[in-house]
């Protein structure tokens, strides 16, 4: 049983699929690759596989991660090759390797968010200073939550169609920010947005390897 961590991108049309669809696609790609994955025990066995963190529909990424186990002790280069040929074009596999840190150590993520807007960087910056109150749906009903504490750093730059935001925020099983809340918060101020996750990090700011 060989632990495998797979680094892959979610880009292009893959931005339009949900996390659930992504999971199904990944399961099938592994089975197509010819690598024999390990399964859970029990009456209805399924592939032992865990994503480091989910990514919502309309969001892209250059650094997604999932972990699984191979029945066979193959070199990681071989696994990488096999996976590459079995994944769709818009979910390219970067590499497969032995996990270094635990996936549960994931705490932060970096994003580049392109905000399509006639407003300038200063105006967007002003809109996002102070508390950012958004409505989160929960089992107890809708609750108003301030998401600004989840944001660790923000940098603003103009680009031809609006404002580009470089952002580091909480990510993982503990505190987590879905950037959809941020773009929803900006509402009418923007006409569209493009969200790309660029790094998954541990609490100490190291890339999750």
């Amino acid at each position: 049983m060989l632990p495998v961590r797979v680094f892959f991108k979610k880009q292009g049309v893959a931005a339009y699929i949900s996390h659930l669809d992504l999971q199904r696609t990944v399961f099938r790609a592994i089975l197509r690759s010819g690598i024999r994955p390990c399964y859970t025990e029990g009456f209805n066995p399924h592939i032992k596989l865990a994503f480091a963190v989910s990514l919502s529909v309309y969001q892209e990424s250059e650094c997604e991660i999932f972990d699984f186990f191979s029945e066979d002790d193959l070199p990681y280069e071989t696994i990488t090759e096999k996976l590459r040929s079995a994944f769709p074009e818009c979910l390219p596999v970067i590499r497969a390797a032995a996990p270094v840190r635990k996936a549960s150590e994931l705490a932060l993520a970096d994003y580049i968010v392109d905000l399509f807007t006639p407003l300038g960087a200063d105006e967007i910056k002003a809109a996002l200073s102070g508390s950012i109150n958004v409505v989160k749906k929960s089992k107890k009903g809708d609750v108003l939550t301030d998401i600004s504490p989840l944001i660790r750093s923000m940098r603003f730059e103009p680009f031809e169609s609006g404002v580009r935001l470089f952002l580091r925020c909480a990510c993982g099983s503990g505190e987590h920010l879905n950037l959809r809340y941020l773009t929803d918060f900006l509402g009418e101020k923007i006409t569209d947005s493009r969200i790309v996750r660029t790094a998954l990090l541990t609490a100490d700011g190291e890339t999750l390897e």
Binding site: G12, V13, A14, Y16, I17, S18, D21, T25, A29, R32, A86, F87, P88, E89, C90
Partner: peptide
């Protein structure tokens, strides 16, 4: 996902 194409 109905309209993107690009399937494997």
């Amino acid at each position: 996902g109905r309209y993107t194409g690009g399937e494997y």
